[in-house]
């Protein structure tokens, strides 16, 4: 069962208008709220600890309250929020309820269990009550919030597959061309009595060498590209999250694939070359 679309505190806060205290009508009798600003919010609004501002849930600044900035903090960054650039303000719960004129109303309740292993049991129990809310375990929420990223990962994998196919063909074509270019030398070697096996191993060795060298250059290029992507996007989105990361797993997959493709190309070419008559290869 699904609860009505939650009015996240974050979104509620987003609709708040903020004006300097000097420009708006205020209620001096009421005590100041204490609020915390995310670093991005503080930077965007040019505020720092100790500043007093006016906050309201209404764009016309009706029912506004004065609030003092008591904290500027860096919330943990989440990839889902990177592109949103949300401005986050932290209130004490009763202050926000009072500002929204919704006493005893919350968007969600978080529960800490004595025994965290029983989270699913409690979730099922609460949902079975059917009281108009949904209960989720922390694992459920992690899974739900990471759905977009799973989709993006799946998309990246599909694109990687296409890119691999194109690069595979590229590698095979280049290898085939390189060895076709060497056919005269190979023909000459066979005429002077070098065994087919020796030639095949030599071709494979050269293919592997070229593939390894190409892989090394490719990985270096990839590292430069990853560095460039991070250098571009991190300041763009004001985040320290990394957008391109070369993992050991990716490194091994790329290296293994490149070498395997190189060897496959070498094998295919050597079979073709050894089938040809040596005299034909030297052009006689």
């Amino acid at each position: 069962m699904q609860v009505p679309r939650p009015r996240l505190i974050l979104l509620a806060v987003l609709v708040l208008s903020l004006v300097p205290t000097a420009t708006a009508g205020r209620s001096p009798d009421q005590p100041l709220f204490e609020i915390g600003l995310s670093r991005r919010t503080a930077e965007r609004l040019g505020l720092s600890v100790g500043d007093v501002i006016e906050v309201s849930a209404d764009p016309s600044m009706a029912q506004s309250r004065r609030a003092r900035v008591t904290m500027v903090w860096s919330p943990p960054e989440h990839p889902a929020d990177v592109a949103r650039g949300d401005l986050v303000i932290r209130f004490h719960l009763p202050d926000l309820q009072s500002l929204l004129q919704q006493p005893d109303t919350v968007d969600r309740i978080v529960v800490r269990l004595l025994d965290p292993t029983r989270a699913s049991w409690l979730r099922d129990d609460l949902n079975a009550l059917g009281r108009g809310y949904d209960a989720y375990t922390a694992a459920d929420l992690a899974r739900i919030t990471s759905r977009t990223f799973r989709v993006i990962t799946q998309f990246h994998r599909a694109i990687a597959l296409i890119t691999l196919l194109a690069s595979g063909i590229f590698l095979i074509t280049i290898m085939a061309l390189k060895f076709t270019e060497m056919r005269k030398e190979i023909g000459a070697l066979r005429i002077v009595g070098i065994a087919k096996e020796t030639i095949a191993f030599t071709v494979l060795g050269i293919a592997a060498g070229a593939a390894i060298a190409g892989t090394a250059v490719g990985l270096a290029l990839g590292a430069v590209l990853a560095w460039g992507i991070n250098a571009y996007y991190q300041p763009l989105f004001h985040t320290h999250l990394r957008f391109a990361v070369i993992t050991p797993q990716a490194l091994w997959i790329v290296a293994a694939l490149a070498v395997l493709l190189g060897l496959a190309a070498g094998a295919a070419v050597s079979v073709r070359l050894l089938r040809q008559h040596p005299l034909e290869q030297v052009g006689r």
Binding site: T163, I169, A176, L177
Partner: peptide
């Protein structure tokens, strides 16, 4: 003249082109 080479070349360019189109 080099049919297999041309086929490989066209296949490679087609896949790169398909990605470009996408």
């Amino acid at each position: 003249r080099s049919a297999s080479r041309t086929v490989l070349l066209i296949a490679g360019v087609s896949i790169a082109g398909a990605l470009l189109f996408n």
